[in-house]
């Protein structure tokens, strides 16, 4: 066992936990500012979108399979299908596209 690696892991874990814990534990009062409340309301959507685009297009190692998977996810999500169905269908679409690509080239 490499003690040095565990030291790094411990430091990483401590920093990451403090980042998560402080805002979660300290802010107990309801926030009065309407602007801040509205901003906090929009943050999850902005964050999720920024995390997804453009990263999703590089997520399968192939732009075409990823694009097909993304379109599948957007369409199914638009029709309100459950999360797990959308997520796995995106993956299945990417997989099937990957199988088809060698046939067309």
């Amino acid at each position: 066992m490499n003690i040095n690696v565990w030291l790094y892991i411990a430091v990483m874990a401590a920093v990451t936990y403090i980042i998560r814990m402080v805002p979660f534990t300290v802010f107990r009062r309801k926030i009065k500012s309407r602007f801040v409340n509205d901003m906090l309301y929009y943050i999850p959507y902005a964050v999720l979108s920024a995390m997804t685009i453009p990263a999703v297009f590089f997520s399968t190692g192939d732009l075409i399979t990823a694009a097909v998977g993304t379109v599948a996810a957007v369409v199914l999500a638009y029709f309100g299908l459950p999360l797990i169905v959308v997520a796995l269908s995106a993956s299945a679409a990417a997989y099937l596209t990957g199988l088809l690509i060698p046939l067309t080239s």
Partner: peptide, 10 residues
Amino acid sequence: GIVLYGMFIA
């Protein structure tokens, strides 16, 4: 690799 992003989209 696309599963989590599919979930975000959903």
